[in-house]
Design a protein around this nucleic acid. Structure first.
Lengths: 334, 334
DNA sequence: CTGTTAGCGCCTTCAG
DNA sequence: CTGAAGGCGCTAACAG
């Protein structure tokens, strides 16, 4: 394999000169540079090896993104995809998506973004230990790390309030994955949930709704959501409304209930991902969240210390059309 | 900064021993290992530096993914997101998403997947040059590189045929981004389009539909799609059907046309991304495409040569409900 | 404009 | 079970 050194030797110039041909073109004559590049081409030399270069320069050109346990989930969830789209605004860096299988200790990156991992996640601890520029998202427990997110607890309350104001008193909650270990069904102990964003939404809603029953589904896809709706409404047939912690869940309820929404059953979502269904929901700025994370990280990477910065983004309640006044003689669901 | 060497020196053991403490625990006594780990902890040593290790071992633990010019587009397009979800199945590797800004030459990766880049893209050429294990997706022109994709040309034809069989003779085509340079409006010269998958779809459709007019939009979002529909139907008010090269575009047409679909205007899509709208479309297995790319790349990484392997995935026509027989006195659109 | 010199931090024989 | 030595490929001073 040709290397910078071997090329230099063959051409009878120093390694520096070859290195300069690639990294500091203005440091050598045009003709010498072209001669070097031609020789490189001829010998199949690809230019300076990225690993060796990064060892030397202590710079990799990539930033690591620590996502949910299963990388797959990250792509199935519109919220995290939008977040990544925003994060992609970070110029001149690649994005290295780090799955649970690969330790964050081994990632070859210049900085790290940790997105919505479970409380106490070892990857988060590892990211902190590593001492690289780091930004945390949706993990509000104060770790002293620059942070961007929303106030999930407060953000969902307008949805709960809308239900209350429409006269609903028997409201169920359908929540996306609240525990990192797969859990489906009725949630007895909300406080033990380790996925803090989901937990905060449930707690925020319950603060207004009282002990509303909570059913969860580990997956956020349409089938799981519809099945969760089935379970919730079968267990509690007298519910007049379902508050969901994601739009996908809400759409699952609507799918399960056919045309009964909203006149027989009111539904609210969370995320504001799709306006096409007229869903009553709360819009959170996922993309802006990613862009903000990019800005924060960039300033750390550039040495402009934005230490301990915490950014809370605004959310907006979207009234929609899936909440109706509670029916007089509330016809039980089913 | 503590390093393996400095730690070894302080402890009075050799570098090998410290290295073994991390990489070959069975090579030293439990107590020595624990002593070393404790000392590391105390001094804030994070374990072997990933860059130095990768230079030494020639292994990075990441695979590079070369995506559209703008990384952002990749996350806005459901097809590529699903592809990534499938690709994420590759175990024990991080995914490094390489934007146009960062040269593929500089990516610190063990292998590369090139996804649907423009014909003649320098990143593709760079990826080939680099000589790493490489898999190509949706770039059917034979480059001698392991490949996975669909036959876009043939895949879209059932949609065109469905329109013809319903009696449509004046059909317009609404296409997503066909050129890597932003282009909106009427496409005069389809053959010069460098985004080959989109081009193949248009050509496949036109092979059956004759010289159907083509309007394109660089962005694939709902607003652009609706605006594209507006342009197409304004320019050609007598169209009775619109064949789209993506579902998003088709939904844009439906949004623009309100309730006129299908009785006044028939519409077809491509991708099979969302079944909720009853769209007549063609389903392509995006996720499977990603999984297949992962399998192909894995076998290359593991040295099981699957050289020059080419996988063409099946697509299926989804009849849907957005194609109707052409109206007798075809009422012009508008 | 060109060359010399020092490492960046690690892993892996190979010998004890 | 432990140690010594070589080198992965490169770049950044600094000196001519």
């Amino acid at each position: 394999m040709p290397s910078l050194a071997s090329l230099a030797a063959e051409l009878g110039v120093s390694r520096t000169t070859v290195s300069n041909a690639y990294n500091h073109p203005e440091q050598l004559s045009r003709e010498l540079r072209e001669k070097i590049l031609a020789a490189a081409e001829a010998r199949g030399y690809q230019g300076p090896d990225p690993m060796a270069r990064s060892l030397r320069t202590q710079r990799t050109g990539a930033i690591g993104v620590v996502l949910t346990e299963e990388l797959r989930f990250a792509f199935e969830d519109r919220a995290s995809v939008d977040f990544l789209a925003g994060l992609a605004d970070i110029r001149d860096y690649s994005l290295t998506l780090i799955p649970a299988g690969a330790s964050v200790h081994d990632a070859i990156v210049d900085g790290i973004v940790v997105y919505s991992v479970p409380e106490g996640d070892p990857q988060l601890a590892g990211a902190i230990e590593r001492g690289l520029p780091l930004v945390l998202c949706d993990q509000p427990k104060d770790t002293g790390v620059p942070f961007v997110g929303i106030d999930d607890y407060a953000a969902i309350q307008p949805a709960a309030r809308a239900l209350l104001e429409a006269g609903h008193r028997r409201v169920g909650i359908l929540a996306k994955r609240m525990f990192s270990t797969p859990t489906n069904g009725l949630v007895e102990d909300v406080a033990s949930a380790d996925l803090v964003a989901q937990r905060a939404r449930v707690e925020g809603a319950r603060a207004l709704l009282g002990d509303a029953p909570v059913v969860t589904r580990h997956l956020n896809d349409p089938d799981s959501a519809a099945d969760g709706a089935r379970e919730l409404l079968t267990r509690f047939p007298d519910l007049t409304a379902v508050l969901c912690t994601t739009d996908s869940m809400a759409l699952g309820v609507m799918e399960y209930c056919g045309g009964r929404v909203p006149h027989e059953l009111s539904v609210t979502g969370f995320d504001g991902i799709d306006t096409r269904y007229g869903l009553t929901t709360v819009r959170q700025p996922n993309r802006l969240k990613g862009e903000t994370a990019a800005v924060l990280l960039r300033s750390l990477l550039d040495g402009r210390a934005s230490e301990r910065e915490r950014v809370l983004l605004e959310t907006t309640f979207v009234p929609g059309a899936t909440v109706a006044r509670v029916p007089r003689a509330s016809s039980p669901a089913r």
